[in-house]
Nucleic acid binder design. Sequence first.
RNA 1: GCGCCUGUAGCUCAGGGGAUAGAGCAACGGUUUCCUAAACCGUAGGUCGCAGGUUCGAAUCCUGCCAGGCGUACCA
Length: 665
Amino acid sequence: MLKNSGGPSSMNILAVLQERFRAALAPLVEDPTDLLTMIRPSGDPKFGDYQANFAMPLGKKLGKPPHDVAAEVVAKLEVDDLCDPPEVAGPGFINLRVKDSWLAEAAGRALASERLDVTPAAQPRTYILDYSSPNVAKPMHVGHIRSTVIGDSLKRTLKFLGHRVIADNHIGDWGTQFGMIIYGFKNFLDRAAYQQEAVTELGRLYRLVNRLVSHLEAKQSLPALREQIEKQRAESARQAAAAKQTPADKNIAKAARRAEGNLKELEAALKEREAGIAAIENDPELSKLAAAHPDIDKSVLAETAKLHHGDEENLRLWREFLPPCLADIQKIYDRLGVTFDETLGESFYHDRLPGVVEEMISRGIARESDGAICVFLAGQPAPLVIRKQDGAFLYGTTDLATIQYRMERWKPDAILYVVDHRQSLHFEQLFGAARAWGYDQLELQHIAFGTVLGDDGRPFKTRSGDTVGLEGLLDEAVRRALEVVRTGDEHKPSGAEIAAEQQEVIAEVVGTGALKYADLATNRTSDYTFSYDRMLAMNGNTATYMQYAYARVRSIFARGDVDVAKLRASGGAIDLAHPAERSLAIGILQFSEALAQTAADYRPNLLTAYLYEVANRYSTFFEQCPVLKAPDEKTKTSRLLLCDLTARTLKQGLELLGIEVVEKM
RNA sequence: GCGCCUGUAGCUCAGGGGAUAGAGCAACGGUUUCCUAAACCGUAGGUCGCAGGUUCGAAUCCUGCCAGGCGUACCA
C-alpha cells in the first residue's frame, strides 16, 4: 500500500496522512514504515475517519506510556489544513477527523479529473496474467468462469493503476483430449452432424471417447480396488477389536473410527465405479462400442503421441479442428466482454519442451527417476515430473517453457496464475522449479480460488449430474434478470417506462453482471454457493444493487434535464453540511485506497465491498437529501455534483470488475 | 500418513493484531401528496469449531485437537 502512496495533492487520504505521520515520527524512530501501516480508516464513526494505532507498540519500544507517545507525535503532526485537531483516546489511539472543507476540495479535484483523481502507481510493474485457460473441445464450465472473471478484473484494475499488463490465455490446445477427438473422428464420426455443426460433433466425440476410456480404466482398476477393500476390511476389524480391548484409550478408538471410515469410503468408491460400468454395459449401443474397442486407452495415447511427433494426418486434423473450437470459445468471451492481449496455447511451446528438459538435466536441476525426468525440491514429498517414462512431456514442462518464453519476451516483474485452488501443489512445484532454474527475482503467484457449489453444498452440477455449461448459465441468469427488470419497471411510481426490446438489452447487462459479481464478491480462497436469487437481489452486495444505484442517479439527471458537461464546468462548489453528504463524499474519496488494496492482495472482493459501501451511502443520501427539490440553488448544484461523482465512481468501479451499467432499469 | 484450504448470527458471506465482531436474506416494527419503495430506517439474533499459548490488546498470530473440502511423481 505504501509503495503506491501519492504526493501531497493526491486524493488518497490515507497516503497523505501516512506522509504527514512519517514526518512527525522521524525524530522518534529510524524507519517508521511499519508504524505507518497501522493507520487505517476508523472502525466506528465516533472515533473519526481515520485512526493511528502505533502509539501502543511504539510506547512499549521506547519505554514510555503510549498515551504520552501519542501526545508527543500529535504535537509534531502537521495536519491543520487536513484534519480537525487530532484526539488521543483510550490507551493511545490517535483519532483523526478530516475537515469538511478539505473533503469538499478533494471532491472538487476528483470531479475535474478523468480518472477521479486516482493516483497511478508510483512504480509501474509488468504483470503477466494467466487466466481462463480453457481446454479446446472440452466444454467450459462454471469453474472456468471464475478464473475468467477474476483474471479479467485483475487485468482491468492493474491497468487502471498504471501497470503494464499482458493478459495471456494459455489455452489447452495440445493435450490428451486431442488424441481422444482424433480417435473419435477416425472411428465414430457422424459426418452430417460434423458438417452442420463441427464443434458440437467434436464435443460429442470427445465425451464419447472419454467415457469409453474411463470405463476401461474403471474396469481395469476393479481387482486392485477389491483387494484394497479386503485389506482395509481386515485392518478395520483388527482396529475395532483393539478398541474393544482397551476402551479407555482414545487414540486407539480414533484409529478404529478412522479405519472404519476409510473402509466405507472405499466401498462407496467401488459401488460408484460398478454403477458406472453397469450404466455402460446396460446400454446396448455403448456396450457394443466398448467391446469393439478394447484397447481404446492405448489407441488414444498413440494418437496423441502421433500428433506430438508430427504425424501428417493428425496434424492436419488438429489444424482443422482448432479454428471452430476457438471461435466457439470466443463467442463466450464476446458475451462476457472479456479480452486478452495474447492467446498462446500449449501448442505454441511444443518446440521448446525438449530443450527445457535437456537444460534442466544438464544444469543438475532435474534427474532421472524410475525412467521419468523429475525435479526434486527440498521440502516437497513429490517431484515435478517433466518427462514421462514414455518420453512424453507434461503440463509442468509446458509451464516451465512458458515462463522462459515470457521472461524472454516481456521481462515481467510478476506472473499471476488465476487457477482453481486444487492445483496449488502443482504451482508450488512449478514455482520451486522455476526458482531453481534461476527465475528467483520474479514474483510468481497462484491466485487460487474455491469451488462453485450448488444448493446441496456439492460442486455445482445439473440434476442429472452433468457439469453446467457456461452458455446455459448465462441464459438462465439473463432470463431471470429480465423478470427483475420487468417487475421493477412495472412498480415504478410513475408507471412502466421501458420498451420490451430495451428491457432485453438491460437484462443481458444485469444478468451477466450478476453472474460475474457473484464470482468476484466472495473472498476468492473460499468456495461459494451459487444462487440465482441471491445474485440478482436488489438488496445486498450484488451487481444489481450497484446498477440500480447508478440508474437512480442517472434518473435524477434525466428528470431534472441536467446537462452533466455544463454542470461540471459550472464551477459550482460541493458543500457537505448534511451527514449523509459527508459520508458519501468521503466514501467516494476512498476509491483510490480500495483500488490499492485490491491490487496489493489481488482480491477483487475488496473492490466489490468498497462499491457496495458507496452504493449504500448513496441510497441513504438519496432518501435524506432531495436533489432536484433541494432548498436552494447552491445546495442543488452541490448535490448534483455529488450525484455525478457517485455515478462515475460506481461506473468506473464496476468497469474494473468487467460489469456494465445502464441508464434505466 | 503427509500437505493445502475452510469452520464467524437460523441461511449466504464480509472482517485476517486495535476500541462495543459486521452486511444481506429470513423474523419483527416503522417510513411513500417527495428525484426509481425490489428502496430506506430501526429491533432482535453471536461461548467467532474446541483447548492452550504469544501480546498492553486475539475472530485475526503460534501449537494441539475436532469437523468438512481438496490434493498427494509420469492427466490438465
